[in-house]
Design a protein around this nucleic acid. Structure first.
Lengths: 144, 144
DNA sequence: GAATAGAGTAACATTTGTAGTTACATTAAG
DNA sequence: CTTAATGTAACTACAAATGTTACTCTATTC
């Protein structure tokens, strides 16, 4: 299983909420757009709520909506909300510390992954939910 | 399973080969340093050979060695050799195309992942195996 | 206040990728 | 000819992610 789809689905969820313009959207409606189970959506929304990106209203006629304007939500916020500790492959990696190489490589790899992660996050930080929303509408007009 | 450890192990393998200074190193010896099975090592070396980063010598007294100098091997080369198609979570993601959002989000996400990937690969390209090798030796002297 | 619709969450099942392992054919050195 | 190694295929075991069911709690509406 090469990675998960939490980030992708989360962006979809938030794009959908932006599209629905502040209405209280039930998880079942979002699930229909994503083609998955409402519980999967609610699980992700639970993480997004902890990060204060969305808010929920319980009870009948309840649902979810964005907690801020799409211009104030960066995709890095989303990424960090649903990928708390992105382990790039160092979890099941425990080399032989009695070997000179094995003893040092783990620290070196941590440094490498830190830089790679920073490079990726820098790009995510530059994209805002408003950009996604704009692309969503722009396509119909042929613009980008 | 949050990601695999192919890249991490591959860097370890190449660092080990650099450390052994061109000798023909059998997979069992590398496996001892990584703390895994020789077959796991040979599988990765098979990918690294296809990318022309290492070469093998068969038969008794055979083994693996680097195909170029450590200064000529970037970690991006390694990454691309063992992670041919890094699917960032779009493999099991197939939204409902009958929904306006679901119909467009996949293309938008592809664009986002492409940029994020580029940011990460840019950092990997800046690190060479020679840098890893240097850090391997530098630690003993307290330098960086 | 009863019915309804939805959030919140636990528990379980299913699927799938990864790593580990065994086995065996092939190759080259001594 | 023996030995030690690569090269692979096949299988097992494991862990993570997702899908699913079921249930409690909460708010709205009639």
């Amino acid at each position: 299983m090469t990675g998960n789809s939490r980030f992708a689905v989360s962006v979809h969820i938030l794009a959908y909420l932006a599209y629905r313009q502040g209405a209280a959207v039930p998880s079942a409606e979002i699930a229909a757009s994503v083609s998955t189970n409402p519980v999967v959506i609610r699980r992700l929304l639970s993480s997004l709520m902890k990060a204060r990106l969305v808010k929920a209203q319980k009870g009948a006629t309840g649902g979810f909506s964005l907690a801020s304007a799409p211009a104030n939500i960066s995709l890095l916020d989303v990424y960090r909300a649903v990928e708390p500790n992105p382990s790039h492959g160092l979890n099941r990696f425990s080399p032989n510390h009695r070997c000179p190489v094995g003893a040092k490589i783990e620290t070196i790899l941590h440094g490498i992954f830190f830089k790679a992660q920073a490079g990726m996050e820098g790009e995510l930080a530059r994209v805002r939910l408003a950009d996604v929303e704009q692309q969503l509408h722009a396509v119909c007009t042929g613009r980008r």
